[in-house]
Simulated scan of single mutants.
Amino acid sequence: MKLATWNVNSLKVRLPQVLDWLALNPVEALCLQELKLSNENFPLDAFTEIGYQAHWAGQKTYNGVAVISRAACTDVQRNLPAYDDHQQRIIATTLDSAIGDIRVVSAYCPNGQSVGSDKYEYKLAWFKALHVWLNDELKRYPRLAILGDYNVAPKDEDVHDPSKWVGDVLVSEPERAAFNSLLDLGFTDAFREFEQDEKSFTWWDYRRFAFRRNAGLRIDHVLLSKDLTPYCTACVIDKAPRANDQPSDHAPVIATLDLTTSHNPNV
């Protein structure tokens, strides 16, 4: 089973790229962020034509998340149930698998704009609400994967030039603490479970030839619960779509789970 995440920065603009990517990368579930379109404008037919189903939470112009899956999803939930927020940032679905239900969550965490701003305080409050919800969700779904754009580079190794980002949004200590609080629930940053190349990033600014210079940040993550982590055999960043014409400024991240009996960690 392969699970992937990709902030597409407008599904209307990037739909052909997403369809092409799925043709080359037939993952079981693709979590999308920043759809930037209303619910009624979601291109469901384009996905069903290539054998996928979809659940989404749309929002005109901003935000929006989706889970594109091969198999049917159940128990679909949109947004954090105990957090009053009109922003569309969470969609959770349940997939059947050889080891039982796997809860798959697509998350678009707030950017925060700038340290100390109202949007920054909203980001920290939102992460607290996410922590509370995930703590409860894990009791119902011990096999849980939350994929998305977290808008946090967890460590300096996830930043192209840490000295230029000290105390800035995306890397500030409160943001990193909020991210680490999710790991404290028992989640694992799947990418860091494996040996990776230095300077591995998932986002590059459109300006100043950032992608060409590999001046990026790793802010898109796959977090796996402790009951799911032992099945993970790989986690990679696919930089190829970032070189497309009119690309998203983010690259997909793909985690591979081996759910065969031979890999069962409990055997």
Rank of each mutant, 00 (worst) to 15 (best):
V8A: 05
N9D: 12
S10T: 14
S10K: 09
V13T: 15
P16C: 07
Q17F: 11
Q17A: 14
V18N: 09
V18A: 11
W21S: 00
L22G: 03
N25D: 00
V27P: 01
E28F: 04
A29L: 02
A29R: 00
K36Q: 07
K36T: 01
N39H: 15
A46I: 10
T48K: 15
T48Q: 15
I50G: 09
I50T: 08
W56A: 01
G58T: 09
K60N: 11
T61N: 06
V65P: 03
V65E: 03
I68P: 03
L80D: 15
L80C: 15
P81G: 03
Y83H: 12
I91R: 04
I91Q: 04
A92E: 09
T94G: 10
L95R: 04
S97W: 11
I99S: 00
A107K: 09
P110K: 10
P110G: 07
N111W: 07
N111S: 08
Q113Y: 01
K119S: 09
F127S: 13
K128V: 04
W133K: 04
D136Q: 02
D136K: 01
K139M: 06
R143Y: 13
G148I: 08
A153H: 08
A153D: 05
K155T: 15
E157W: 06
D158M: 04
P162C: 01
S163K: 13
G167H: 07
D168Y: 05
S181Y: 08
L183V: 14
D184F: 00
L185Y: 03
D189Q: 05
R192I: 04
E193R: 09
Q196H: 06
Q196P: 00
S200R: 08
S200G: 11
T202M: 06
W203E: 05
A210N: 11
R212L: 10
G216Q: 13
L217Y: 04
L217S: 03
I219F: 13
D220G: 08
K226D: 05
K226R: 13
L228G: 01
P230H: 08
P230A: 05
Y231Q: 09
Y231C: 02
C232K: 02
C232E: 00
T233G: 00
A234H: 03
I237V: 15
D238K: 09
D238C: 00
D238M: 01
K239M: 04
K239D: 08
A240S: 04
N244S: 13
N244Y: 15
Q246C: 01
P247K: 07
P252I: 06
I254N: 02
T256I: 02
T261F: 08
S262C: 02
N264L: 03
P265L: 12
